[in-house]
């Protein structure tokens, strides 16, 4: 049995927070994908205008945006875990982590532009 750490109360509990974020974002993404898949199934968009109409609904745009926020958060936790496991040189790891963060922030702007631009 693992002894409960005092840090559980006063610490930053990074590990637990990331572990939880990884799972919560995953579940939210699955819910979104099920909704989107059923919408596409029922609306059956074939041409450009029907796709455009589908994504002109404000709630779907917001849901898609939330999906991508979840995706980027999920990707950040996963990539950070992998970098911490395999890249031990501290400068290299920092550089890689910064690259991931910058890429994800760029993607966030990009998806906002796609949805509302």
């Amino acid at each position: 049995m693992v002894k409960r750490s005092r840090l559980a109360v006063t610490g930053a509990h990074y590990g637990l927070k990331d572990w939880l974020a990884q799972r919560v974002t995953a579940v939210l993404m699955v819910i979104y994908l099920v909704i989107l898949a059923s919408m596409i199934f029922f609306a059956a968009p074939q041409d450009f205008s029907s796709w455009k109409t589908l994504f002109s609904q404000q709630w779907l745009r917001i849901a898609t945006f939330v999906f991508f926020i979840c995706l980027f958060w999920h990707a950040w936790v996963g990539m950070r875990n992998i970098l911490m496991d395999y890249v031990h040189a501290i400068q290299l790891r920092l550089l890689a982590q910064i690259t991931v963060i910058v890429a994800l922030m760029g993607y966030l702007v990009w998806i906002a532009d796609i949805l509302w631009g």
């Binding site: 450009f48 990539m79 992998i82 890429a103 993607y107 796609i114």
Partner: peptide, 25 residues
């Protein structure tokens, strides 16, 4: 893990390019 890294890159940028192409014009 491997699939996760590949979904991050090139997965996410390709997905965004696809979505952009589908919705732009």
């Amino acid at each position: 893990r491997i699939s996760g890294v590949l979904l991050f890159f090139p997965g996410i940028p390709l997905l965004l390019v696809g979505l952009q192409m589908a919705l732009q014009s």
